[in-house]
Design a protein around this nucleic acid. Structure first.
Lengths: 364, 364
DNA sequence: TTGTATGCGTTATCAC
DNA sequence: GTGATAACGCATACAA
């Protein structure tokens, strides 16, 4: 194959894709340039959709690419880009200090899915990393040390100084933290609004005495409850609020007989109960022991929409879906924004969730 | 800063880290070489832990790295590696055609965690990708097309021809497929063994009439049931087997009254029931309606150990944990093996799970 | 054991 | 519009 009509001079090239060299022969811009009788520069321009290429030549290049089944070497591109002070096109999805409870929760999966989707649509890559403080500082993921990524979406936060330091090197978004940290971008569920939606929903079905039962991280929710009850002019009986504060990992503490006991000691018991999906299971149980039927005697509405669980209960539990996939997407979207524009004040984005109707609520 | 005593000649280098060039000045091997008064080659060798460097020089290099706070440019290394026909050090964790059910399941999270851990420990990176056939072929993740990865751990399998093609370009491990595909490496839960363990466990507590209730993908489990009952000489009453086959996404079909009905029509009802975690919820309910108490009247044992769910039930459900994290680790480990040794017959690795004791089983 | 020189695939610069 | 060429940061034949 002679190359007379071909403008570039690539004599220095030690091998072309036409001669087998080792075993990993790959088609490069040089090969495409040869085939299309243009320079590598032109090929690169076509590759990057730059305007200053004549339609005719662009065609030739595209045809050559097609014919040779050319695939750009992403790693090489990344290198040029990165060293040109640009971005690597990689972001990390970090799960830091995941406790066993979170580990067994389906939300995480949805968060990750959402993040990945959004990142992929932006043509970037999502590198997945889990890390715990107890692993020790010498196990900090290489990727974070390398600076190979443009930013981080993190669920959880490192507690060690060193951990904080490396995380702080990057633009980052905190995914649904239990409490919103100041000076960070984060994306979170607006539990308050979600609960208000629940109350509004129940009120629209004629419920006026709605109980609030919870044992964990319920302060936002309780706020929403109080506001909604107030705004809608429902019965604001403090006896309808049954809470206990337990330490997070003890979600397994599922006995809620005391709550039902208290509620049904009221002169007028509630017609509806609001709680968390998993607590609802205990509530069903406690109600059954008293001979109370759901939803005939009491309506129940859960929070989190743990689908398997809600569907497994009898009757199936109506619950508030926090839309975790969407939350993941929002986090990724905001991260990409932040990477583009590192300055600017921090933002907190909230989603309010959506009620998924099943069989545990009835119209009065 | 004069460089007399320095062996290399880097006059061609257009900028060093000592002069600001643009804004992205980074320390490179050249800088380290200068500082340590050695050649880049030596620096590179130290970087790669190659033996043929004198301790004294190695020391100098390490000191220089430390002093300059040198961070290798991973992208550049990747490029060399890749183009040298070696590996990229990246593997992909793919979730293909995830249905809504799987999406809401906590296992996935654990699989991913396990895979990531193992990959990280091997010093590699795990890129996370989700993809569905319905997205269309033009949305195939760039990363798979680029050939930037060494292999794939996949949960799920593409149905389109094109999808299969790109997946087939890589060494891959299938993660717990519903049925073991021939000619593929895979890692899966040995449901049969898990069920046998359950039966053995129940038998050790004195149970001889154990019911098997399931509605989905239960054939392996049923096999395990039959074998164990046979081997242990327990009551092999076909009436104890209550199954119906439903279409997978309909796991929400949670009514199992018919099963309990049938079971308690037997001349001698079972003393223990074996099922899936979520079905157990319906079983609890059906039993309660008949006034039967768990575990006093019947022992119940679930499968999958959906922690939240098991802990939410009353009494808390004893269940078989499939050890999904471990499964993920095994998958990653096997993938790394396969990448190193592309030839060789395909392997199926099984894990048998572990019984997590809670409150739903009692000794007879 | 150590250093020189060159290549990896792509893009940026600059001259035409 | 187009092309020649020098980087990018690292690794490695080959020479010493």
């Amino acid at each position: 194959m002679r190359l007379e009509s071909f403008p570039g001079n690539y004599e220095t090239r030690k091998h072309s894709s036409f001669q087998v060299y080792g075993e990993n022969v790959s088609i490069t811009v040089v090969d495409v340039a040869k085939k299309a009788t243009v320079s590598v520069t032109t090929v690169s321009r076509v590759l990057n959709n730059q305007p200053q290429v004549s339609p005719e030549r662009r065609q030739r290049v595209l045809a050559a690419m097609e014919e040779l089944d050319y695939k750009p070497n992403q790693v090489a591109r990344d290198m040029r880009r990165k060293t040109a002070g640009r971005k690597t096109g990689q972001i990390a999805m970090m799960l830091i200090n995941l406790d066993d409870y979170t580990m067994h929760t389906a939300f995480m999966m949805q968060y990750i899915h959402g993040v990945q989707q959004e990142i992929a649509e932006a043509g970037q890559k999502c590198i997945f990393v889990t890390w715990n403080d107890e692993f020790g500082d010498d196990t900090i993921p290489q990727i974070l040390l390398d600076g190979e990524i443009d930013g981080v979406v993190t669920k959880g936060f490192p507690c060690t100084e060193i951990g904080k330091q490396w995380l702080n090197r990057y633009p980052k978004i905190i995914l649904n933290p239990p409490v919103a940290p100041p000076d960070y971008d984060c994306v979170m569920v607006d539990y308050e609004a979600g609960i208000r939606d629940c109350i509004t929903y129940l009120a629209s079905l004629g419920h006026r005495r709605i109980a609030f039962v919870d044992m964990q991280m319920f302060h936002c929710k309780l706020l929403g409850y109080r506001r909604a009850v107030d705004e809608l002019g429902l019965d604001a009986d403090e006896g309808l609020i049954q809470t206990r504060d337990i330490i997070p990992p003890l979600k397994s503490e599922s006995d809620l007989d005391w709550a039902i006991e208290n509620l049904w000691s009221l002169s007028e018991p509630p017609t509806a109960i609001l709680s968390n999906d998993y607590y609802c299971s205990a509530i069903y149980h406690a109600l059954a022991e008293r001979g109370l039927k759901v939803p005939d005697d009491v309506s129940i509405i859960g929070y989190d929409n743990a689908v398997d669980h809600c569907e497994a209960l009898k009757p199936k539990l109506t619950s508030v879906d926090i839309e975790a996939v969407e939350l993941g997407r929002l986090a990724a979207k905001q991260l990409l924004d932040r990477i583009r524009k590192p300055q600017g004040s921090h933002r907190k984005i909230c989603t309010r969730g959506k009620i998924v109707e099943r069989k545990s609520v009835r119209k009065l």
